[in-house]
Write a protein that binds this DNA or RNA. Structure first.
Lengths: 186, 186
DNA sequence: TCACGATATGGAACACGGTTCCGTTTGTCG
DNA sequence: CGACAAACGGAACCGTGTTCCATATCGTGA
C-alpha cells in the first residue's frame, strides 16, 4: 500500500484504518467489510482500492495499532502525574488492540510468513514501551517490583483470550484489576 | 439425532456420514454442504434434516470416525499376518481421520464444551487400540520397544498438522515413513 | 484561473457459502 | 391396497467477500 498521491485518497485510507479498528473493537474482527466501509463513510469499492483483500486490511490495522500503541506511551507518561496511572491507561489501549491481534489468526493462516514477522514486530515495538512505563511506576515507588514487562503483557494477553467471542466477558475490566493489583501497599 | 424410523432415512444418514468423511479427506473440512450432499446422492434438504447445522455434521462424522477407527483395529490384526503391517494400515485410517479432527477446531469454538468431551472420547477410545496393535507388533519382535501408543499417535497427529491447507504436503506418506522407521533391524 | 487527464469513488452486481421452505415422493402400517 | 406421516430434493434466501465501471474529484500545466 504505497501512500496515495491524492489528498482525499490519503484521508480515506486513514479513515478506513480508524473505522476498521473501531469496528473490530465494537463487533469483533469478523465485522463485515460493508460495515467498516459504512463507518468510514465510504463505499466498499474504496476499501478494496486501498486494501486488496480483507486480510490485508486486518494486517494494516494491526501494524497501525501497534504503532499507535507504541507512540502513545511517552505522551501518557508526560500528561499523567502518576506512573501507575499512565500504565493503567496504556494497558487500556493495549487491550483494545489485542482484539485485533487475536483476530489475526483468523485472517492469516498461522503458517503465513507475515504472521511471524508481525509478531516479532509486535514484541520489538511494544515491550520496551511497556517496560518504560513499568519502570517509571517502579521508580515512583507505586508498584511491586517483581514483574517484568513481557510477563505483564502476556498476562493481559491471556486475560483477553476469548473476549471477542463472548460479549459477557469483560477483558478490559479484568486487565484493569490486574494492573490495580500491582499497586504497592504499605 | 435419534435413529430415524424409516429405512431410507437410516440409509441416507449413513450415506451422508460416509460421503462427508470422504469429502473431508478429498477436499478438506471446508468442503461445501452442497458437495457432500451431491456425493451422497441426496439433496441439501436431506442433509439438514439429519444434521441441523454444518457443525453438527462435522461432529457426527468425527464420532463416527473415532468409532470406525477403533473398531477397525481387531479385524486388521486378524486378517494381516504381520503385526507391523496391521499397525501400518491402522495408522493409514488414523491419518485420514485426523483431517476431520483438525477441522473440528474450525467448526466448534475451542471453548465449546462439546470440544473437550470429544477429545477425551477420542483418547479413551483410540489409545487402547493403538496400544494393542503396537503390543502385537512388539511381541512379534517386529518393532522397537521404546515408544508408547500415545506418543506414536501424537507424533502422527503432529505430522498431519497443516495437511488440510497445503495440498503438496503429503502427511500420509510421512506417517507411513514414521511407522516404517519403527521396524526393528537386526 | 481553468480545463483536462489521471485518480479515486460508490455501490450495484457477482460468486459462493450456509440455511430454510415447501411441493412432491415414498416407506410403512392397518 | 390405500392413506398419511415421514422424508426428500432443490430452488430460493440471506449474508459474506470481491469485482467492475460509470461517475465524481483532484491537482497540474498552460
Amino acid at each position: 500500500m504505497p501512500a496515495p498521491r491524492r489528498a482525499d485518497a490519503r484521508r480515506n485510507a486513514q479513515a478506513l484504518l480508524d473505522a476498521a479498528a473501531a469496528e473490530f473493537v465494537a463487533s469483533g474482527v469478523e465485522a463485515p467489510v460493508r460495515d467498516i466501509a459504512a463507518r468510514a463513510g465510504v463505499g466498499v469499492g474504496t476499501v478494496y482500492r486501498h486494501f486488496p483483500t480483507r486480510a490485508e486490511l486486518v494486517v494494516a490495522v494491526y501494524r497501525h495499532q501497534v504503532e499507535a500503541c507504541a507512540e502513545a506511551g511517552e505522551p501518557l507518561l508526560a500528561e499523567t502525574g502518576s506512573g501507575l496511572g499512565a500504565l493503567a491507561r496504556w494497558i487500556d489501549l493495549f487491550v483494545d488492540f489485542l482484539v485485533t491481534k487475536h483476530g489475526l489468526a483468523g485472517a492469516l493462516r498461522p503458517d503465513d510468513d507475515r504472521f511471524e514477522a508481525l509478531h516479532t514486530y509486535f514484541l520489538d515495538r511494544l515491550v520496551p514501551v511497556c517496560a518504560r512505563l513499568l519502570d517509571a511506576a517502579r521508580e515512583a515507588g507505586e508498584v511491586r517490583t517483581d514483574l517484568d514487562a513481557l510477563s505483564l503483557m502476556r498476562g493481559v494477553g491471556n486475560l483477553c483470550v476469548g473476549a471477542d467471542t463472548d460479549p459477557r466477558y469483560d477483558a478490559r475490566a479484568l486487565a484493569a484489576h490486574l494492573v490495580a493489583g500491582l499497586r504497592r501497599t504499605g
